[in-house]
């Protein structure tokens, strides 16, 4: 039987993981089941047919981008990920969605915001300081009415 979840497939095939010693109170099987269930919920409630809704499309791309760049340090590799580029390709409709994301959880959204808006409210001395850069962009968004 083929699983619809690549996560579950990976977990099943990774024999070394299952044989490894994990001195924790949670079983490996329950971890794999939890992950497969989350993937199932995602696939069930966000089918491809609903991807025309910007919010749905954005979230699907964001989840993919975050998962596949989680261990990367290279800004260029992070922003050149196809899902990130597709978010940029959504254009101005993505601006409030990105700003809302920034207000909840910080991340490398600055390249996308610069690309979409052709603006940069971040001062040179703030470069790399993710919290301050996010704050500058959120202020920018408020001043232009993208967020309240």
């Amino acid at each position: 039987m083929t699983s619809a979840s690549p996560i579950f497939d990976a977990a099943q095939n990774d024999v070394s993981f299952w044989l490894g010693e994990e001195n924790v109170a949670i079983g490996d099987e329950s971890t794999a089941i939890s992950m497969a269930f989350e993937t199932f919920l995602n696939d069930y409630f966000i089918p491809i047919s609903r991807e025309s809704i910007p919010y749905v499309r954005y979230h699907r791309l964001k989840e993919k981008w975050e998962a596949e760049t989680a261990f990367l340090s290279s800004i260029s590799d992070i922003v050149m990920h196809p899902a990130y580029q597709q978010i940029i390709g959504m254009g101005p409709v993505a601006i409030p969605l990105i700003l809302r994301e920034m207000s909840i959880k910080r991340g490398q959204w600055f390249w996308a915001m610069k690309a979409i808006t052709n603006e940069d409210p971040v001062k040179p001395e703030q470069r790399g300081i993710v919290a301050e850069m996010s704050k500058a962009w959120l202020q920018w968004g408020k001043e232009r009415g993208y967020i309240t």
Partner: peptide, 28 residues
């Protein structure tokens, strides 16, 4: 944490993201 990366951490800091990106979105 999204606030710093390995390059900063190896240099002994955890308050910013270091990378020589061409768009100047990180510290270098």
């Amino acid at each position: 944490s999204p606030d710093y990366n390995c390059i900063a951490w190896a240099a002994g800091t955890d308050d910013r993201w270091w990378w020589p990106d061409s768009q100047y979105t990180a510290y270098w």
